[in-house]
């Protein structure tokens, strides 16, 4: 399917259970490197849970159990020898609601580098990250100001800068624009186009227009069968194909608004 793209992440027979409750069932797909992959689907079908499998954030839920494999450039990140903290240094995440630390703008961006024992020039790293997140020009004169004084859209771009500063290969975005107004949303979407030159991006969105606008590949998720609460990927492919000639009837119904 992606002859021209390297595979960054490869999911094989992935299941997620919370205690007795199965949340995700039998997902297999391949995420191409330096492309934007969108995960769409109705509420409650496990999109965020799926996204959190890529950086082992589900480990933080005591009852969560993940089975199957997620290969990151060939290495299964769920292998018992793999340190989840290291996984998160390679695979960053941006959350639905902007969640800057109650620290200065500078310290927010420097946070990840500091805990990783970054030896280089911190000022340069902060500037580079803020530039990459298209925020530098707006904040360069008050880097010491509290991050909480920024607008919602600026806070979200700060969170992106913070993720970039750790120098990851992949950035996961969990509905990064759903708490933002249309102008801030547009800025984030433009930013994603810039970022995909250097980073593999996986984005969860329930906004189908957004998925169609920004993504190169789209994974359509839905509950695996009637009456089940386990979500699965029912169709995955290049975004234009998913939106114009979906193979699965349920994808077509969802995209044309006849469902959910």
């Amino acid at each position: 399917m992606f002859d021209k793209h390297e595979i960054a992440l490869s999911v094989k027979n992935l299941n997620v259970d919370y205690g007795d409750f199965r949340a995700l069932e039998n997902i297999s797909l391949e995420i191409p490197a330096r492309q934007i992959t969108a995960i769409i689907g109705p509420s409650g079908c496990g999109k965020s849970t799926f996204l959190r499998c890529f950086n082992r954030m589900n480990d933080l839920v005591p009852t969560a159990r993940v089975t199957g494999e997620v290969l990151f450039y060939g290495q299964n990140i769920y292998d018992s020898k793999v340190n989840p903290v290291e996984v998160r240094r390679h695979i960053g995440m941006v959350f639905q609601k902007p969640n800057p630390f109650p620290k200065s703008i500078y310290e927010n961006v420097a946070y990840g580098a500091r805990i990783n024992g970054y030896k280089g020039n911190m000022d340069e790293l902060v500037e580079r990250s803020l530039r990459a997140a298209a925020l530098w020009d707006e904040v360069k004169d008050d880097l010491k100001k509290s991050a909480l004084a920024l607008s919602g859209g600026q806070q979200q771009r700060l969170c992106i800068a913070r993720a970039i500063a750790v120098e990851p290969q992949v950035i996961l975005m969990d509905e990064p624009a759903s708490a933002l107004d249309p102008i801030a949303t547009l800025k984030i979407e433009e930013l994603m186009q810039e970022l995909k030159k250097d980073y593999t991006i996986v984005i969860v969105t329930h906004n189908m227009q957004q998925a169609a606008r920004v993504s190169d590949y789209t994974a359509m998720m839905m509950l695996s069968k009637e009456g089940s609460r386990a979500g699965t990927v029912i169709e995955f492919g290049p975004t234009p194909q998913i939106f114009t000639s979906p193979r699965d009837r349920r994808t077509e119904d969802y995209i044309t608004g006849r469902f959910g």
Binding site: M57, L60, V85, E86, R88, G92, N99, G112, A163, V166
Partner: peptide, 8 residues
């Protein structure tokens, strides 16, 4: 969560 996601 933000801190964990940065590899803390």
């Amino acid at each position: 969560q933000a801190a964990y996601a940065l590899g803390a």
